[in-house]
C-alpha cells in the first residue's frame, strides 16, 4: 500500500472482483488512438493471415461476413485505467480464421489500416480468446472504435485489440508493435497490471 492521501476517501464502492488493479469502471465508451481515424471502404477492405513469406489466407468483406459468426460478451480494460463491463460484439473467432493454417510460429503481429501494429504470443489469439469483430452493441462498428473491423483480445489491455485491423502476421520471433516500442508493456495483462515496460 502506498502513502495515505490526506482526506481522500474515494467514491462509495463495493469491492469488485471483476475490476483489475488500478482500474475504474466507466459506462460510456472512451476512444483512444494515436493518430487520425482511417476510413476503409468495404469494397477495398481485406483481411489476411500471412507469414514473412507472404499471405496464407485472404478474405474480402463478403467472404469474411460469410464465415461462422460468434457474439462474445466481454469486459474491456484500457491501460488508461478505465474498464467497461459486459460489452457485446459480433465477429469471427481467430480459431476459425486460423483453422487451416499450419505454422510453427509462436508470435503474432496484428497490423492495421493506418499503420498501427501490436504484438502478442500466438497462443493468446487461439482457443476462444480472440475475435475479429465488426459489430458493437448490435450496430456496425464505427470507425473511431475501429470499424469496419477490429481485433478483440479482451484478456489483455485494450491496445492489443488493434482497431482497423488489416491482417495478422505469424512470426518466429517476437516483434514489438507501436505502443510496445513506446514504453508500454510487451504483454499487457491487466490482472498483473502490466502497463509499462518493466511492470
Amino acid at each position: 500500500m502506498g502513502i495515505i492521501s490526506r482526506a481522500f476517501h474515494g467514491r462509495p464502492r463495493e469491492p469488485d472482483a471483476k475490476l483489475p488493479p488500478g482500474q475504474y469502471l466507466v459506462h460510456d465508451f472512451p476512444v483512444l488512438s494515436a493518430g487520425p481515424t482511417p476510413r476503409v471502404p468495404l469494397d477495398r477492405w481485406e483481411f489476411s493471415i500471412d507469414t514473412a513469406e507472404g499471405p496464407v489466407h485472404r478474405w474480402s468483406w463478403e467472404e469474411f461476413l460469410a464465415l461462422p459468426q460468434e457474439t462474445p460478451t466481454v469486459d474491456l480494460h484500457c491501460v488508461t485505467k478505465w474498464s467497461k463491463f459486459g460489452t457485446g460484439w459480433k465477429g469471427v473467432s481467430l480459431d476459425v480464421l486460423m483453422e487451416d493454417v499450419e505454422s510453427a510460429a509462436e508470435y503474432a503481429l496484428a497490423y492495421s489500416y493506418g499503420g498501427y501494429t501490436t504484438n502478442l504470443p500466438l497462443e493468446d489469439l487461439l482457443d476462444g480468446k480472440a475475435w475479429v469483430v465488426h459489430e458493437f452493441d448490435g450496430e456496425e462498428l464505427e470507425p473511431p472504435h475501429g470499424g469496419p473491423a477490429r481485433l478483440l483480445v479482451p484478456h489483455l489491455y485494450l491496445w492489443k485489440s488493434a482497431k482497423w485491423i488489416k491482417g495478422i502476421r505469424l512470426l518466429n520471433e517476437d516483434w514489438p508493435g507501436f505502443w510496445e516500442t513506446a514504453g508500454y508493456h510487451n504483454y499487457g495483462d491487466p490482472w498483473r497490471e502490466q502497463r509499462y515496460d518493466g511492470d
Partner: peptide
C-alpha cells in the same frame, strides 16, 4: 504521469 491516491482503508485509484 499516473497519479495514485490511497484512502485510509487501503482503497486506491489512479488517473493519468
Amino acid at each position: 504521469v499516473d497519479v495514485r491516491l490511497t484512502a485510509p482503508d487501503g482503497y486506491s485509484t489512479q488517473r493519468s
